[in-house]
Structure formats: C-alpha cells, structure tokens
Design a protein around this nucleic acid. Structure first.
Lengths: 345, 345
DNA sequence: AGCGTTTTGAGGTACGTGCATCATTTCGAG
DNA sequence: CTCGAAATGATGCACGTACCTCAAAACGCT
C-alpha cells in the first residue's frame, strides 16, 4: 500500500505474512513442502501489502538464460524470411535481458519435418519452443511429447488450437478474413464472383481466413459467388500455374482473395491474362512481391502482420511462461495492418 | 565473441580494454574525467568482445525508479480516457521493472494549461514527461524550458516536430489520412463531395490527417470535391452543432471524414438528418460512440490506434531515453487498425 | 625539476532475489 | 507419549552493475 517509500521486498513480505524468508521463497517459486494454509497466508500478504517481485533482481539472481528454440519454415516464402530476420534481430536485443534465441529453419509445409524438429529439442538446452504450426495429427502428438518433456510451446503465425501449446502469437485470422470480405464486398458490384486462393488448408491460419471471409460474404453480401479455394502451397511456380488455370476456368471473376503466400506467382498469372487493375485483388503480408503488386496496381489491398511486433510479443510471452505471470505485459493480439497503394511508406 | 560461455561482464571488458573497472564505469555511464583516447579504447573493446550491459543487473544496481509524469487531456474525449486507463494499467506492470508513473489530467485543448503543467514538473521528482502536444508557440517554449531542466520529453498521439522532444509515440497521421482517402475514393462515385471535420487544426495529428487525405484525393481521385474542414474542438455538443450546420449547408455531401473526436455529436447530427447509411463516414479511434456507429451503420470505417500498444511503446521509449540505447527495443511505429462493422470483435 | 590539475586505479558496499545448507519446530500416526 | 516425517526458520553466498571514497599515477605548465 505504501507506494512511495522504498520498494516492497521479500523481507517486507515475510514480515507481513509472519513467516520466514525461506518460506516466502518456497511459495513464490512454487517449491514443495509448504502447507496450503501457510501458502495462503503468504498469498494474502502479497495482496495486502502489494508485493511485486522485482524482475530485475529476479532475473539477475537466477542467473540462467531464457533459451528459446525457433522452428521456422524455409523456402521462398518471403514473409517467413522476414520472420526469421526479426527473430535474429530481437535475439540480439533480448540478450541484454538474458534471452538466448536459437533459430532453426525447417522444410516448409512438411509436417514430418516439423514433428522431427520438435522431437529433437532437448529440455536441457531450451526452455521454450516457438514454431509455425501445421494442423496435422502428427504435430499434435509431437507437441504433446514436447510438453511432457517440460518444454513451453508457443505457436507463431499459425496456431494449433486444442493442443498443449501454451500461447499463440499472431493475428486474429478470422477477423482478417472478415475484413477482407467486408472490403471486397464494397469494391464489387452485386452478383460478382470472387475466387479464393490458399497455400494449404492444412494451415489453420489459411483456413480461418477463408472461414471469416465466407461468413461475412454470406451474411452481408449474399449476392456474391465464391469460387475455390485452390491451393498453391505458398510456392512461386505452383501458385502461378494454379492461379493461371483458375482464372482461365473462371473468366467471370471480379475479385481474388489470396489467404496464403506465393503472391509473385499470382501477380504473374494476373498480368499474363491482362487482368491487372480489372480484378480486385486482396493479399496477405507486405513483402517484395505484394509491395510491387500494390504499386503496379495488380493488388488493391494487402492485409499485413508485422513480424517485428510478433517477435516482441513472443519475447514477452516467453518471459511470462518461464518466469510467471507478472514478469511481463499481459498478452495482446497482434494488429492487422491494411495497406493500399497510398499508404505504403 | 564467445557466445556460449558465461556472460561477458564489465570485468571482462576492463581486462580487454586494459583499464580499470572504475574507468569502464566512467565510460559506460558517461561520467566526466576520461581522456578521449581512453574512452575510445573502452569502446573498441566493447565492440571487440561483444559486451552488452546486463540490464537486469543495471536496473537493480542503480536502485532508482524510472519516473514518468503523464500530462493527458481531460474532458469527455473517450479516447483520452482509454489512454489514461492504459497508462494506469501499464504503470502497475512497469513497477516490476522499476517504472513509476504519475498521471495528471489537464484541461483539453488549452495550450496555457499544458504549458503550465510542463513548467510545473520538477526534474528532481521525474525523469521523463509524456504529453499530448498542442502545436503552439507557448508549448514549444515550455518544452525547451523542460528540456533545459534535464527532463526527457515524449509526445504521445499528437507530435511537436521541430521541438526539443526526444521521441514521438503515435501513428503516422499522414498515412492515416492517405488510407482514409484511398478508401473513401473507392467508396464514392466520380464527382462526389466529401466533408472534413476536425477537432482543432492546432493539433498536428488532425492537420496531418487532413493533409494526407487531401494529397491522395488530389492525386488519385481528382474528381472529388472537398468541403471544410470545420472544427468541433473534440467536444460532444460543439461537434453536433457544427456538423449539423455543415451538413445542412452542403446537402450534396457523399462522404464525411472526421479526423478528430466528438463522434457522438457527429452521429447524432447524421441521424437527425436521416443520413445514416447514405453518407459514407470515416472516423478515428474505436470507442463507445464509434463502435455504436459502426454497428448501427452510421459509420462505415474507423481508423484506430491502440492505446495499450502506445503505452507499451512509451515504456520502451522511456527505458531507451533514460538508460541508453541498448536498454530496450528500437523504436517502432504504432500501427493503424482498420475497423468495419464486420471485424469488430 | 617542481607544481597543481586531471586522469586512472583499487576496493568496497548495495541493490532484491534465487538457491543451497543445516538446524529447529510442528505434525500426525501408532 | 514417542518417533519419524514433514514443515519451517536462520543464514549466507551469488548474480552483474552502480556509485562512492581514497590513493596513485600521468599530465601540462612554468
């Protein structure tokens, strides 16, 4: 309660609770050998005197680093490259707060490789695993095993709901799909047809975006027709071929919403058919290709998630998971940015 | 360079630089009485051995709190209320990292009150001032005085470029205006007329939004006509009256862009004239009134800045300013969120 | 060379918590 | 009541940096 005089320390807490420092330590750090009644005394005293553990001292005293192991998809996906760069950069900064990041790239869209990567992580050398999930049974199983080994798990960008992961850092993909639909609906005339493109429906972020999009189209713009989705595996050439065929099969398309990557291929297909500017195109993630697409007019709108903001949230989340709830900010959603040609900076 | 063995400490640094601990301390903390040549030896050693000061130990040792004094506008502006709440909340969390926030509300839109508030802050009891700027000469002068007293200054939401403030936390308001124009341009038919509403052009965030809006309309949608801006002082009843008169004076308006607050009054005026749903309305900040406006259809689009994200950035910035560059993340822009009826959560 | 001044060194304590050790008390079952 | 087990207390060191004091050395100047 006394906000102004020196800090409230564990000594004050021990005195207020009428127990020894050793017992306070046992309660604060969840060690065994404390009767529930005693623990409650301490917890009530924490509330009463407003004790908050000083994280600067805590981190110093525990001496150990917070070790996070990242498993990120490799390949030509530019967004994942930005994500890995952001992890690298933030890792350098987090060192000043005793964070130690290990970044490993694994084969994209390959559930077996991801499962193997998860299984290979030793709880002796890492506290925490950060990975982009694939919603397949073998990944659920690997997550359960990792959790049993005592690792903390954080999904990044693409979640794995219902699993043993402790946190998800990424945008609200349902809301992203809804936003796309809401804007697409305002761009297109009644009765138009919209095509959907995804990387893979096995990625829950992709399928959630589609679900959100469908929901709003059905509710608010029921006259619009939806075609697809087709899958391009987030790869350049496959997306090119797939979208080219898709556009040829549906010459009446008025809009295209790509929930995945592979936008370079998509743009190439759109340009090849001379549809740039005629087709309303909404894509995700501001990268080289999508930026070029906005500038050239091939893409109307890009919904973006900021990798740096996500990595900051990851670091915060790691602190929370490993050190306890009051070690860091409460969790918060990553924001969805909307880019048009006119607000590219 | 040795990344894995125990940390690189000041002791290692002293040894590597061939100086004593005391000298290292003098260099690291910018104390006087070090020859340039010696300081350079230390700085080169820092680079060479990759020394990074351990912030957990540093904060603990310095013992002092990081004291930030907030000067936030009072009044009926809901966004400012959210901002103050966010400051309160984050203040509680920042205590665990030795942050101490003092939050003071001062009369809104009153440059004299703000200047007096700035002048009243004692560098003995605060390290840092966080305030919402008003772009008037007397504020520039007060900022200069505060800076001379040794205070660090951070502008929040509304900036004061060209002054002695050390940092600005807020969205890119030029980009916000451009975004609004880009979307408004796509919503309206050729030749339509758009009205502009502001709180006060003395607030640089408001004038920047208008500038960005104008820029894109002129460049991309030159057929659109712009009326206004009119000023509602961010107040409920004045905005109501002003917008009502404005709409009556321009019965041909197809869209309305309010860069300021006072949206409850704006909605009331729009409803009174039976224009809800007919007029395309873009507003700022997701608060009670704008949320209700989205839901009822009186507002089409809300550009939002997240007060909590801004306060997190403020705290990061305070650490950087008071403790030095590697104490925290590098600065980053606050993101602009776009809300439609369909992605309200 | 001798002076005063500036620069550098040596060493200590303090910050608040984590963690370990060992002694002491309390508890519960028989 | 007695004994072993469980719970609690007492104490001390460690973490890496900040900040202080006092002494020693190097410097610039005449």
């Amino acid at each position: 309660m006394d906000e102004r005089a020196g800090r409230v320390t564990v000594h004050d807490l021990a005195r207020a609770a009428g127990v020894s420092l050793a017992t306070v330590d046992r309660v604060l750090n969840g060690r065994s050998g404390v009767r529930p009644a005693t623990a409650e005394k301490v917890e009530m005293a924490i509330e009463r005197i407003g004790f908050r553990r000083d994280m600067t001292a805590s981190m110093l005293a525990r001496g150990r680093d917070l070790r996070a192991h990242f498993l990120l998809p490799d390949g030509t996906n530019q967004f994942m490259g930005k994500l890995a760069d952001a992890a690298q950069n933030l890792g350098r900064l987090a060192r000043a707060e005793r964070g130690l990041f290990e970044i490993e790239r694994i084969k994209a869209m390959d559930a077996r490789a991801l499962a193997a990567g998860l299984d290979a992580i030793n709880p002796e050398t890492a506290d925490c695993v950060v990975f982009v999930a694939i919603d397949k049974p073998e990944i659920h199983a690997a997550v359960t095993r990792a959790h049993k080994r005592g690792l903390k798990l954080i999904t990044l960008v693409s979640d794995l709901p219902g699993s043993d992961r402790q946190a998800f850092i990424g945008i609200d993909n349902l809301a992203a799909g809804r936003t796309a639909a809401s804007l697409m609906g305002r761009f297109l005339p009644d009765g138009a047809r919209v095509g959907l493109v995804a990387g893979s429906l096995g990625l829950i972020d992709h399928s959630q975006r589609i679900a959100g999009f469908r929901e709003v189209i059905d509710a608010e713009f029921p006259s619009l027709q939806i075609a697809g989705p087709v899958e391009g595996q987030d790869a350049f050439s496959l997306t090119y071929e797939t979208v080219l065929a898709f556009l040829k099969a549906h010459p009446d398309l008025g809009g295209l919403y790509n929930v995945g990557a592979g936008n370079a291929g998509l743009i190439m297909a759109v340009n090849e058919l001379g549809l740039a500017g005629k087709l309303r195109v909404i894509a995700h993630e501001l990268t080289g290709p999508t930026r070029a697409g906005l500038e050239s007019g091939a893409i109307d709108l890009v919904l973006d998630q900021d990798p740096e903001a996500e990595l900051r949230a990851v670091w915060t989340s790691i602190k929370r998971l490993v050190l306890g709830a009051d070690a860091a900010d409460p969790p918060h959603r990553i924001e969805i940015k909307v880019f048009l040609r006119d607000n590219l900076r």
